[in-house]
Design a protein around this nucleic acid. Structure first.
Length: 597
RNA sequence: GGGGAGGUAGCUCAGUCGGUCAGAGCAGAGGACUCAUAAUCCUUGGGUCGUGGGUUCGAGCCCCACCCUCCCUACCA
């Protein structure tokens, strides 16, 4: 049994999340975590809402509310959506807690004391009316290269060239149209070059495991070649104060997201431990070098997780070129594996809220079962390359694979048992093909589990579904419905017992992917319906006297084990109600109409 | 401009170390069956593996060039 940290990307609080987001980090991390718990590992799964930064400020201004109010609203929406998807966080929190502020500041102090911050003067744009940094992408003007009048400060959408906002002709703020002011400003830069050697050692070691996805390790190694200091503070008033004299009370200097959100993995772990009443318990996952940590995210976040965050951990632990010693948190573990997904597209196009190419999690779940979506993501999601969500494919996967394959097997099994015995029958003597099927399905625990452990969920669910087909074939081959005579009753009982055992096994094997229906299927076969425990939304007090907030938490110790458990002969089984809902093909057109209306 | 990924059956994709690697599912065609949400099971057609070279006894697989698609590109979180 290992300590396993499941570190899940922090959704940004500028609005509700769409299905592309949760396909990238939510479903894969939950499948992995549920499986690892079943396999007997001690999993700590944490995440939260990322609430600071310029886009929140702008969205709040537009909505006429304070940034905190906006973040409050969206944090709640996002958390509700994640619960509805069944993502089994031990703690899902947020970045505006006092705990998080304290942890971030402790990390800053540790990195600072070890000498890995460089103070530099930079030249950047600010908004004259607010004094806030104006990020490059929020400045527009005429492109100095192609004269395109609406070039962005970072890049011209017309000619594609990278730009420096100071070179724009007639620069103006995209937020309020005012002319930006270019000023000199002081910032702390993380001295990444001083950590590059240590990062390289770590990455080489990770590469040698052969476990990382090829594109992730390659990308990570690649960006190491051109490494330079990166600013960890901003001129902004919405964020965590810099814990140094002269900076602490300066209302326009705040820590940047790169020294804020990623630290949430640690602060959430600490918050979780404090809430359990054993406040040092987080150390089992962070200080013990034997502990494993898996970080789940979309590919746009690889840089954060394979460079910035490990660099911060190394700097805090005093393990870069400049030496140093760990702060009060001790030496902290670097990621075991950065598990990055690619992107989901939507009917062939990039998700875009502004262009209405979007399906929000909430909308999807208001009309469809969460497990149908989870099945789609596991079977056809952006695991290794971008993949496309189309309504027709969603309907097809749901109807032809999930309902017709698995759902129907459950249903026909329960129906036959209910009709002929009314309870799980005992098996007589097993024939060769009975035993072969039982062995085949039992072996699926190993095959599927191994694939999930290696983050090959498409392959894993494919193997599970292949086993489903085997059982369907066994039923067809043995034609139990023809065994009506008294002299055939023992054989009938044997066949139905074998099938029921296989269905119970496959239900466990599929349960990390389909947790809601796993519980329902278990109940159909007369079980307690407690294969997969569910997360719950809870109103929590801030541990340090701040405002309360909703968190996601749960007790997952009751999850079924990842191994065969013999079914109980005599368990009553009544005529089942179908667990899975077949979709009307008309929803394809309905949904497409909804997209364009 | 630089970096990365991908182009395999009508569709979605598997193909690990170069040697039954020309595959699966779905869709199409035919059949069986009726326990089951018209579900299931069996049979079957279909591909110059992006293009052109090269290495090799042998290449989706390795090398070179080219074409096409997508992603990233460091103050965007």
């Amino acid at each position: 049994m290992s300590k396993v940290l499941s570190a899940v990307a922090w959704p940004y609080a500028n609005g509700p999340r769409h299905i592309g987001h949760v396909a990238g980090f939510g479903v894969p991390s939950d499948v992995f975590s549920r499986y690892m718990r079943m396999a007997g590992h001690d999993v700590l799964m944490v995440s939260g809402t990322d609430e600071h930064g310029t886009p929140i400020l702008i969205a709040a201004d537009e909505a006429g509310v304070t940034p905190q109010e906006l973040a409050d609203q969206n944090h709640r929406i996002i958390a509700e959506d994640l619960v509805a998807l069944g993502i089994s966080y031990d703690l899902y929190t947020r970045t505006t807690t006092r705990n998080h502020t304290a942890v971030v500041q402790e990390l800053f102090t540790g990195v600072y004391d070890n000498g890995y911050f460089i103070e530099q003067t930079t030249y950047g744009a600010i908004s004259p009316s607010t004094g806030r940094t104006l990020p490059d992408r929020y400045i527009e003007g005429t492109c100095p290269i192609c004269d395109y009048p609406s070039a962005r400060g970072d890049q011209c959408d017309n000619c594609g060239n990278q730009l420096d906002p100071a070179d724009l002709i007639n620069p103006r703020s995209r937020i309020n149209g005012e002319v930006p002011e270019f000023v000199e400003t002081q910032h702390f830069f993380l001295d990444l070059p001083a950590l590059a050697d240590a990062l390289k050692v770590w990455l080489d070691e990770r590469e040698a495991t052969g476990l990382w996805r090829p594109n992730v390790i390659r990308f990570s190694q690649n960006i190491l070649e051109d490494i330079r200091p990166r600013a960890m503070t901003r001129d902004i008033d919405w964020g965590i104060p810099v814990p140094l004299d002269g900076w602490r009370d300066n209302p326009t200097k705040r820590l940047y997201v790169w020294f804020d959100a990623v630290i949430g993995y640690l602060s959430a772990s600490i918050e979780w431990a404090r809430r359990t009443g054993d406040e040092d318990r987080w150390r089992e996952w962070w200080n013990d070098p034997e502990s494993l940590s898996y970080y789940f995210m979309g590919k746009d976040n690889i840089t954060f997780h394979s460079q910035i965050w490990p660099a911060e951990l190394l700097a805090y632990s005093g393990k870069g070129d400049k030496g140093g010693k760990p702060g009060e948190y001790g030496e902290l573990n670097l990621p075991t594996e950065v598990v990055s997904s690619e992107f989901l597209t939507m009917e062939g196009k990039k998700f875009s809220s502004s262009q209405r190419v979007v399906i929000y999690v909430r909308d999807l779940l208001s009309r469809y079962q969460p497990d149908a979506f989870r099945y789609f993501v596991a079977a056809a999601g952006p695991e290794n390359q971008d993949s496309d969500f189309t309504w027709s494919e969603f309907v097809r996967r749901t109807n032809d694979e999930l309902v017709a394959g698995w759902g129907n097997l459950v249903n026909r099994t329960a129906n036959m048992i209910a009709k002929s015995f009314g309870e799980i029958p005992a098996a007589g003597e097993l024939g060769a093909e009975d035993q072969a099927l039982l062995d085949h399905v039992d072996a699926a625990y190993g095959v599927v589990g191994d694939l999930i452990g290696r983050h090959r969920q498409k392959g894993a669910i494919g193997e599970a579904m292949r086993a489903v087909a085997e059982v369907n074939k066994y039923v067809s081959d043995n034609e139990p419905w023809k065994l009506k005579g008294d002299d055939e009753r023992e054989r009938l009982g044997t066949i139905l017992h074998v099938v029921a055992q296989c269905v119970a096994d496959l239900n466990r094997i599929l349960s990390p992917f389909l947790p809601f229906s796993a519980n329902a299927v278990d109940a159909v076969l007369g079980g307690s319906g407690e294969v997969q425990p569910m997360p719950r939304l809870e109103e929590a007090d801030d541990l340090d006297g701040g405002a309360g907030y909703p968190v996601i938490t749960g007790d997952y110790t009751g999850a079924a084990r990842w191994e065969r458990s013999p079914i109980k002969v005599g368990t009553p089984v009544s005529k089942p109600v179908p667990v899975f809902t077949k979709l009307d093909p008309a929803v394809v057109d309905e949904e497409l109409a909804r997209l364009t209306s």
